[in-house]
């Protein structure tokens, strides 16, 4: 349905997006993961026709949208990271304005406004000015405004940043419903791995402007199928222990966590005894350990060398 072909964007000397190939099939829910500065928002801006690519193409049903963006705009709903609403207008007035300029027919506009307000759970507060809303409520109206024209593809750029858990859950439920009940194609970017895991069938992982991995959750997890993840808790933390573990041949990655350390090692290397010895040698003790199944977070760490919040 929608694909990018070697999509690139260079700002002055800096390559923000570097030859990205992505696709979205109809009805899919696809996640786009990446740390800050990975190029996610730039990619979304190019896909949604707000930003002209330096090279490459964006195709909708096989037709390039670069020279003629109007086609993609008709079928696209974009929820930007920022609250793109008029604060001095009420939720209803905002939706009415955007509905009109989306050319939603006059006779169904009212009904459509009430539908999207119902969807985001703000029907009762539609007459209030947006500036009086909480961050979560604003984000919900932000989503509602992108749904007025019943888009076939919905792009959400970190729609849950900085909001309360209740609004966050509401947004996630809404997106899930849109995808499952109306068949709307979703492209969802987030810092939150669990959101992407919950919502998306497939994931693209971006870093430094490039797609470093893609696939379904299982496909991505299989990247770590040759590794074991061990979560270790210690009686006291020790830098010397970290160094000692890094020096072990079977160990691929060591991460200092809040509760101890996380060790990723070659699958079946059985390094537990070595870890206990190493701890004793530096004057600490292992109080608890757990073999973990790898998560997408582990995959992300493995691929980019940093966590999503970095």
């Amino acid at each position: 349905m929608l694909e990018t072909i070697k999509l690139s964007k260079t700002f002055k000397e800096k390559k923000a997006v570097d030859e990205i190939d992505m696709y979205l099939d109809e009805g899919e829910s696809v996640g786009l993961l990446g740390p800050n500065g990975a190029g996610k928002s730039t990619t979304i801006s190019m896909i949604s026709s707000l930003l002209k690519p330096s090279s490459g193409d964006v195709k909708l049903n096989g037709l390039s949208t670069i020279k003629n963006p109007s086609e993609i705009r008709k079928v696209l709903g974009v929820v930007p990271q920022e609250i793109a609403l008029y604060e001095e207008l009420s939720a209803y007035e905002n939706l009415k304005f955007f509905g009109k300029i989306y050319k939603v027919k006059k006779d169904i506009l009212e009904e459509r406004i009430q539908e999207v307000l119902e969807m985001v759970g703000l029907k009762e507060r539609q007459k209030e000015l947006v500036k009086t809303f909480s961050g979560g409520m604003k984000r919900r109206v932000n989503i509602a405004a992108a749904l007025l024209h019943k888009p076939k593809i919905l792009i959400l750029d970190e729609p849950t940043v900085g909001i309360d858990p209740q609004s966050r859950n509401h947004i996630l439920e809404t997106v899930k419903k849109l995808n499952e009940e109306t068949g709307m194609t979703i492209l969802y970017t987030s810092h939150y791995m669990e959101e992407v895991e919950q919502l998306c069938n497939r994931v693209y992982i971006m870093d430094h402007g490039r797609v470093v991995a893609s696939g379904s959750k299982q496909e991505l997890l299989s990247i770590l199928s040759t590794e074991d993840t061990i979560q270790v808790q210690l009686s006291k933390k020790s830098d010397a222990l970290l160094e000692a573990i890094k020096g072990m041949a079977a160990v691929r990655q060591v991460e200092d966590t809040n509760h101890g350390i996380r060790v990723i090692s070659k699958k079946g290397s059985n390094i537990l005894a070595d870890l206990v010895h190493a701890a004793e040698n530096v004057g600490t003790q292992i109080t608890h350990f757990q073999m973990e199944d790898p998560s997408l977070e582990d995959v992300f760490l493995h691929l980019t060398g940093k966590t999503l919040r970095d």
Binding site: S49, R73, V78, P80, I83, I101, H149
Partner: peptide, 17 residues
């Protein structure tokens, strides 16, 4: 600044309007 203009652009509205 608040990206409302981008949203307007995305509606496909005529800039003249």
């Amino acid at each position: 600044r608040e990206r409302v203009f981008n949203r307007i652009i995305l509606t496909g509205s005529n800039p003249f309007h």
